[in-house]
Amino acid sequence: MADRADTDAGFDVDVAVVGGGPAGCSAGVFTARYGLETVVFDRGSSSLRRCACLENYLGFPCGIDAKRFLKLAQTHAREAGCRIREELVDSVVALAGNGETEGTADGEGFRLEPQGGDPVTARFVIAATKYDGSYLHGLDDDEALFVTEEGADGGVERFDRAYPDDDGRTPVAGLYVAGPLAGSGDQAIIAAGHGATVARTLLRDLRREEGYWDRFARQYDWRRYTKNRDEEWADPERWVELFDETAPEDRDAENVRRLAESYAAERDESYLEAETAARRTERGQRRLAEALDDEVLLEAVDDEAIRERAAELEGGNAQSDADLIDD
Protein backbone atom coordinates (compact mmCIF):
# COMPACT_ATOMS: atom_id res chain seq x y z
CA MET A 1 0.00 0.00 0.00
CA ALA A 2 0.99 3.66 -0.20
CA ASP A 3 3.42 4.85 2.44
CA ARG A 4 1.48 6.51 5.23
CA ALA A 5 4.28 6.58 7.81
CA ASP A 6 3.85 10.34 8.25
CA THR A 7 0.27 10.01 9.54
CA ASP A 8 1.33 11.91 12.63
CA ALA A 9 5.03 12.57 13.15
CA GLY A 10 4.39 13.72 16.72
CA PHE A 11 4.23 10.11 17.92
CA ASP A 12 6.86 7.39 18.04
CA VAL A 13 4.51 5.05 16.15
CA ASP A 14 1.09 5.27 14.58
CA VAL A 15 -0.31 2.09 16.16
CA ALA A 16 0.70 0.18 19.28
CA VAL A 17 -0.80 -3.29 19.64
CA VAL A 18 -0.73 -4.85 23.10
CA GLY A 19 -0.75 -8.62 22.64
CA GLY A 20 1.09 -10.73 20.08
CA GLY A 21 -1.37 -13.60 19.70
CA PRO A 22 -3.77 -14.24 16.80
CA ALA A 23 -5.83 -11.08 17.38
CA GLY A 24 -2.87 -8.76 17.87
CA CYS A 25 -0.78 -10.10 14.98
CA SER A 26 -3.77 -10.07 12.65
CA ALA A 27 -4.56 -6.45 13.54
CA GLY A 28 -0.91 -5.50 13.10
CA VAL A 29 -0.74 -7.08 9.64
CA PHE A 30 -3.62 -4.91 8.42
CA THR A 31 -2.41 -1.63 9.93
CA ALA A 32 1.22 -2.15 8.84
CA ARG A 33 0.27 -3.16 5.30
CA TYR A 34 -1.75 0.04 5.10
CA GLY A 35 1.46 1.95 5.78
CA LEU A 36 0.98 2.79 9.47
CA GLU A 37 4.06 2.35 11.64
CA THR A 38 3.03 -0.43 13.99
CA VAL A 39 4.62 -1.99 17.06
CA VAL A 40 3.32 -5.18 18.69
CA PHE A 41 4.06 -5.88 22.37
CA ASP A 42 4.08 -9.57 23.26
CA ARG A 43 5.02 -10.79 26.70
CA GLY A 44 1.84 -11.74 28.55
CA SER A 45 0.47 -15.19 29.30
CA SER A 46 -1.04 -17.01 26.35
CA SER A 47 -3.53 -19.87 26.43
CA LEU A 48 -2.51 -20.79 22.88
CA ARG A 49 1.01 -21.57 24.07
CA ARG A 50 -0.55 -24.25 26.27
CA CYS A 51 -2.46 -25.76 23.35
CA ALA A 52 -1.22 -29.26 22.47
CA CYS A 53 -2.24 -28.99 18.82
CA LEU A 54 -4.26 -26.39 16.95
CA GLU A 55 -6.63 -28.48 14.80
CA ASN A 56 -9.45 -26.15 13.77
CA TYR A 57 -7.61 -23.25 12.10
CA LEU A 58 -8.64 -23.11 8.46
CA GLY A 59 -5.79 -23.92 6.08
CA PHE A 60 -4.09 -26.54 8.22
CA PRO A 61 -6.01 -29.72 7.33
CA CYS A 62 -4.23 -31.94 9.85
CA GLY A 63 -3.60 -29.25 12.44
CA ILE A 64 -0.44 -27.38 13.44
CA ASP A 65 1.41 -27.15 16.72
CA ALA A 66 0.63 -23.90 18.48
CA LYS A 67 4.27 -22.85 18.89
CA ARG A 68 4.85 -23.08 15.14
CA PHE A 69 1.58 -21.27 14.44
CA LEU A 70 2.50 -18.35 16.72
CA LYS A 71 5.93 -18.14 15.12
CA LEU A 72 4.30 -17.97 11.67
CA ALA A 73 1.81 -15.34 12.90
CA GLN A 74 4.58 -13.10 14.25
CA THR A 75 6.74 -13.68 11.17
CA HIS A 76 3.77 -12.57 9.08
CA ALA A 77 3.41 -9.43 11.21
CA ARG A 78 7.10 -8.66 10.75
CA GLU A 79 6.89 -9.25 7.00
CA ALA A 80 3.99 -6.78 6.89
CA GLY A 81 6.15 -4.17 8.61
CA CYS A 82 5.42 -4.56 12.34
CA ARG A 83 8.09 -4.36 15.00
CA ILE A 84 7.70 -6.99 17.72
CA ARG A 85 8.78 -6.02 21.22
CA GLU A 86 8.95 -8.86 23.72
CA GLU A 87 7.97 -6.67 26.64
CA LEU A 88 5.06 -6.55 29.06
CA VAL A 89 3.08 -3.30 29.01
CA ASP A 90 2.43 -2.03 32.52
CA SER A 91 0.25 0.94 31.64
CA VAL A 92 -1.30 2.96 28.84
CA VAL A 93 -1.70 6.66 29.64
CA ALA A 94 -3.71 9.15 27.59
CA LEU A 95 -1.75 12.17 26.44
CA ALA A 96 -4.87 14.31 26.09
CA GLY A 97 -4.09 17.90 26.91
CA ASN A 98 -1.03 17.20 29.04
CA GLY A 99 1.46 18.65 26.56
CA GLU A 100 3.95 15.85 27.23
CA THR A 101 4.52 15.10 23.55
CA GLU A 102 5.38 18.04 21.34
CA GLY A 103 3.42 18.15 18.10
CA THR A 104 0.53 15.91 19.11
CA ALA A 105 -3.02 17.11 18.78
CA ASP A 106 -4.88 17.96 21.96
CA GLY A 107 -6.99 14.99 23.00
CA GLU A 108 -5.00 12.47 20.97
CA GLY A 109 -2.46 9.80 21.65
CA PHE A 110 -1.16 7.52 24.35
CA ARG A 111 2.06 6.70 26.16
CA LEU A 112 2.74 3.02 26.75
CA GLU A 113 4.99 2.11 29.66
CA PRO A 114 6.65 -1.30 29.22
CA GLN A 115 7.90 -3.14 32.27
CA GLY A 116 11.55 -2.91 31.33
CA GLY A 117 12.08 -0.97 28.09
CA ASP A 118 11.63 2.60 26.96
CA PRO A 119 8.13 4.08 26.80
CA VAL A 120 6.44 4.52 23.42
CA THR A 121 3.94 7.11 22.29
CA ALA A 122 1.28 6.09 19.78
CA ARG A 123 -1.67 7.75 18.15
CA PHE A 124 -3.74 4.57 18.33
CA VAL A 125 -3.74 1.61 20.72
CA ILE A 126 -5.26 -1.80 20.05
CA ALA A 127 -5.63 -3.83 23.24
CA ALA A 128 -5.43 -7.47 22.12
CA THR A 129 -4.50 -9.38 25.25
CA LYS A 130 -6.72 -12.15 26.56
CA TYR A 131 -6.55 -12.34 30.32
CA ASP A 132 -5.37 -9.00 31.59
CA GLY A 133 -6.61 -5.52 30.80
CA SER A 134 -5.25 -3.89 33.96
CA TYR A 135 -2.84 -1.76 31.89
CA LEU A 136 -5.92 0.18 30.72
CA HIS A 137 -6.70 1.54 34.22
CA GLY A 138 -7.30 5.28 34.20
CA LEU A 139 -8.12 5.68 30.50
CA ASP A 140 -11.78 6.13 31.44
CA ASP A 141 -13.91 5.84 34.53
CA ASP A 142 -12.73 2.52 35.96
CA GLU A 143 -16.32 1.64 36.78
CA ALA A 144 -16.96 1.69 33.03
CA LEU A 145 -13.79 -0.20 32.12
CA PHE A 146 -13.89 -2.96 34.73
CA VAL A 147 -16.39 -5.21 36.43
CA THR A 148 -16.05 -7.33 39.55
CA GLU A 149 -16.99 -11.00 39.41
CA GLU A 150 -17.32 -13.36 42.33
CA GLY A 151 -14.85 -16.23 42.25
CA ALA A 152 -13.56 -18.91 44.56
CA ASP A 153 -11.21 -16.40 46.18
CA GLY A 154 -13.78 -13.63 46.40
CA GLY A 155 -14.27 -10.67 44.08
CA VAL A 156 -12.16 -10.69 40.92
CA GLU A 157 -11.77 -7.59 38.79
CA ARG A 158 -11.66 -8.00 35.03
CA PHE A 159 -11.99 -5.79 31.97
CA ASP A 160 -15.61 -5.36 30.91
CA ARG A 161 -15.90 -7.10 27.55
CA ALA A 162 -19.03 -5.08 26.82
CA TYR A 163 -17.04 -1.82 26.95
CA PRO A 164 -16.01 -1.90 23.25
CA ASP A 165 -18.61 -2.23 20.50
CA ASP A 166 -18.69 -5.18 18.10
CA ASP A 167 -16.09 -3.54 15.83
CA GLY A 168 -13.70 -2.84 18.71
CA ARG A 169 -14.33 0.89 19.16
CA THR A 170 -14.40 2.33 22.67
CA PRO A 171 -15.56 5.64 24.13
CA VAL A 172 -11.87 6.62 24.41
CA ALA A 173 -10.80 8.16 21.11
CA GLY A 174 -7.99 6.15 19.53
CA LEU A 175 -8.42 3.11 21.80
CA TYR A 176 -9.63 -0.15 20.25
CA VAL A 177 -10.03 -3.62 21.75
CA ALA A 178 -9.64 -6.87 19.80
CA GLY A 179 -9.99 -10.59 20.40
CA PRO A 180 -11.06 -12.33 23.61
CA LEU A 181 -10.63 -9.15 25.66
CA ALA A 182 -13.45 -7.71 23.54
CA GLY A 183 -15.56 -10.82 24.03
CA SER A 184 -14.96 -12.28 20.57
CA GLY A 185 -14.33 -15.78 21.91
CA ASP A 186 -11.21 -17.80 22.62
CA GLN A 187 -10.85 -19.80 19.42
CA ALA A 188 -7.71 -18.72 17.55
CA ILE A 189 -9.41 -18.35 14.17
CA ILE A 190 -12.18 -16.21 15.67
CA ALA A 191 -9.69 -14.03 17.54
CA ALA A 192 -7.65 -13.52 14.35
CA GLY A 193 -10.77 -12.57 12.42
CA HIS A 194 -11.79 -10.09 15.08
CA GLY A 195 -8.30 -8.60 15.10
CA ALA A 196 -8.61 -7.97 11.37
CA THR A 197 -12.08 -6.48 11.87
CA VAL A 198 -10.85 -4.08 14.53
CA ALA A 199 -7.87 -3.01 12.40
CA ARG A 200 -10.18 -2.29 9.48
CA THR A 201 -12.41 -0.30 11.85
CA LEU A 202 -9.40 1.80 12.86
CA LEU A 203 -8.46 2.33 9.21
CA ARG A 204 -12.02 3.29 8.32
CA ASP A 205 -12.08 5.84 11.13
CA LEU A 206 -8.73 7.23 9.98
CA ARG A 207 -9.91 7.48 6.37
CA ARG A 208 -12.99 9.36 7.49
CA GLU A 209 -10.71 11.85 9.24
CA GLU A 210 -8.85 12.18 5.94
CA GLY A 211 -12.14 13.11 4.27
CA TYR A 212 -13.39 9.87 2.71
CA TRP A 213 -17.07 9.04 3.02
CA ASP A 214 -19.40 6.05 2.73
CA ARG A 215 -17.85 3.09 0.92
CA PHE A 216 -14.67 4.99 0.07
CA ALA A 217 -13.81 5.07 3.77
CA ARG A 218 -13.76 1.26 3.86
CA GLN A 219 -10.34 -0.14 3.09
CA TYR A 220 -9.91 -3.51 1.36
CA ASP A 221 -6.55 -5.24 1.42
CA TRP A 222 -7.17 -7.24 -1.74
CA ARG A 223 -5.13 -8.19 -4.78
CA ARG A 224 -6.65 -8.61 -8.24
CA TYR A 225 -5.34 -9.81 -11.60
CA THR A 226 -4.72 -6.97 -14.04
CA LYS A 227 -6.38 -9.01 -16.78
CA ASN A 228 -9.68 -8.80 -14.89
CA ARG A 229 -9.59 -5.02 -14.63
CA ASP A 230 -12.40 -2.97 -16.11
CA GLU A 231 -10.60 -0.42 -18.27
CA GLU A 232 -13.24 2.20 -17.54
CA TRP A 233 -11.96 2.39 -13.96
CA ALA A 234 -8.29 2.44 -14.95
CA ASP A 235 -8.74 6.12 -15.77
CA PRO A 236 -8.38 8.29 -12.62
CA GLU A 237 -10.78 10.82 -14.13
CA ARG A 238 -13.57 8.24 -13.92
CA TRP A 239 -13.05 8.13 -10.17
CA VAL A 240 -13.05 11.93 -10.03
CA GLU A 241 -16.45 11.89 -11.75
CA LEU A 242 -17.81 9.33 -9.28
CA PHE A 243 -16.47 11.26 -6.30
CA ASP A 244 -18.05 14.46 -7.66
CA GLU A 245 -21.40 12.67 -7.97
CA THR A 246 -21.39 11.24 -4.43
CA ALA A 247 -19.47 13.83 -2.38
CA PRO A 248 -21.20 15.48 0.59
CA GLU A 249 -22.26 19.03 -0.09
CA ASP A 250 -19.67 20.54 2.25
CA ARG A 251 -16.68 19.23 0.21
CA ASP A 252 -14.89 21.61 -2.12
CA ALA A 253 -13.92 20.48 -5.62
CA GLU A 254 -10.17 20.56 -4.97
CA ASN A 255 -10.51 18.31 -1.91
CA VAL A 256 -12.77 15.90 -3.79
CA ARG A 257 -10.30 15.63 -6.66
CA ARG A 258 -7.39 14.99 -4.29
CA LEU A 259 -9.29 12.18 -2.55
CA ALA A 260 -10.44 10.69 -5.85
CA GLU A 261 -6.92 10.63 -7.27
CA SER A 262 -5.57 9.08 -4.08
CA TYR A 263 -8.30 6.43 -4.15
CA ALA A 264 -7.59 5.69 -7.82
CA ALA A 265 -3.89 5.23 -6.99
CA GLU A 266 -4.81 2.78 -4.21
CA ARG A 267 -6.94 0.78 -6.62
CA ASP A 268 -4.17 0.81 -9.20
CA GLU A 269 -1.72 -0.68 -6.66
CA SER A 270 -4.10 -3.55 -5.94
CA TYR A 271 -3.79 -5.02 -9.46
CA LEU A 272 -1.06 -7.53 -10.24
CA GLU A 273 0.22 -9.00 -13.47
CA ALA A 274 0.10 -12.81 -13.60
CA GLU A 275 3.89 -13.06 -13.47
CA THR A 276 4.05 -10.91 -10.33
CA ALA A 277 1.30 -12.94 -8.66
CA ALA A 278 3.16 -16.16 -9.54
CA ARG A 279 6.38 -14.85 -7.99
CA ARG A 280 4.56 -13.88 -4.81
CA THR A 281 2.87 -17.27 -4.68
CA GLU A 282 6.21 -19.05 -4.98
CA ARG A 283 7.74 -16.80 -2.34
CA GLY A 284 4.85 -17.57 -0.02
CA GLN A 285 5.30 -21.30 -0.51
CA ARG A 286 9.00 -21.05 0.23
CA ARG A 287 8.36 -19.13 3.44
CA LEU A 288 5.92 -21.81 4.55
CA ALA A 289 8.46 -24.50 3.70
CA GLU A 290 11.01 -22.73 5.92
CA ALA A 291 8.67 -23.27 8.86
CA LEU A 292 8.64 -27.05 8.39
CA ASP A 293 11.12 -29.52 9.81
CA ASP A 294 13.60 -30.57 7.10
CA GLU A 295 13.03 -34.26 7.70
CA VAL A 296 9.25 -33.94 7.42
CA LEU A 297 9.54 -31.76 4.32
CA LEU A 298 11.84 -34.24 2.56
CA GLU A 299 9.56 -37.14 3.42
CA ALA A 300 6.56 -35.23 2.06
CA VAL A 301 8.42 -34.46 -1.18
CA ASP A 302 9.42 -38.11 -1.57
CA ASP A 303 5.84 -39.26 -0.90
CA GLU A 304 4.49 -36.78 -3.45
CA ALA A 305 7.02 -37.93 -6.04
CA ILE A 306 6.01 -41.55 -5.46
CA ARG A 307 2.31 -40.68 -5.83
CA GLU A 308 2.93 -38.72 -9.04
CA ARG A 309 4.96 -41.58 -10.55
CA ALA A 310 2.27 -44.08 -9.57
CA ALA A 311 -0.38 -41.91 -11.22
CA GLU A 312 1.71 -41.69 -14.40
CA LEU A 313 2.14 -45.45 -14.51
CA GLU A 314 -1.55 -46.01 -13.86
CA GLY A 315 -2.45 -43.59 -16.64
CA GLY A 316 -0.02 -45.31 -19.00
CA ASN A 317 -1.50 -48.72 -18.24
CA ALA A 318 -4.99 -47.39 -18.82
CA GLN A 319 -3.93 -46.00 -22.19
CA SER A 320 -2.36 -49.33 -23.16
CA ASP A 321 -5.57 -51.15 -22.29
CA ALA A 322 -7.56 -48.70 -24.39
CA ASP A 323 -5.20 -49.20 -27.33
CA LEU A 324 -5.68 -52.97 -27.06
CA ILE A 325 -9.46 -52.57 -27.12
CA ASP A 326 -9.27 -50.31 -30.21
CA ASP A 327 -7.10 -52.88 -31.97
Rank of each mutant, 00 (worst) to 15 (best):
L206N: 04
T38D: 01
D166W: 07
V240G: 04
R158G: 03
Y271C: 09
E308V: 10
R215P: 01
G109Y: 03
V301N: 01
A122C: 06
D6M: 08
V240D: 05
G193H: 10
V40Y: 03
R238L: 06
G155S: 14
G174N: 00
V120G: 00
G63C: 10
D132M: 03
G183M: 05
G151R: 15
A300N: 02
V198N: 01
A96I: 05
Q74H: 07
V172N: 03
D90F: 08
S91P: 03
Y176N: 04
D221W: 02
D303H: 01
L288I: 08
Y271A: 12
L203W: 02
D303A: 07
S262F: 03
G133Q: 02
T7C: 08
D321C: 10
A5E: 09
I190H: 01
A182Y: 00
G19K: 02
A77Q: 04
L72H: 04
Y34V: 01
D205A: 13
E266F: 05
G35Q: 07
V198Q: 05
G174C: 02
K67N: 08
Q319S: 11
R200P: 00
K67R: 12
Y212N: 04
T226S: 08
A32S: 13
V92S: 02
Q187S: 05
R4G: 07
L313C: 05
P164Y: 07
V240P: 01
G211P: 00
N228I: 09
K227H: 10
D250Q: 12
V40M: 08
H76R: 12
T201M: 09
A322S: 11
T246L: 11
G183I: 03
W239T: 05
R158H: 08
E210L: 11
D3E: 12
E299N: 04
D6L: 13
T197S: 05
C51P: 00
T104I: 15
A311T: 13
A23M: 07
G99T: 14
L58T: 12
E100R: 15
E241W: 07
E87F: 06
M1G: 11
L72D: 06
W233G: 12
G107A: 11
E86T: 10
C51F: 02
A311Y: 06
T129G: 04
E150W: 10
D3M: 06
E312A: 10
F30L: 15
G44T: 07
G211Y: 01
L206Q: 12
E241K: 14
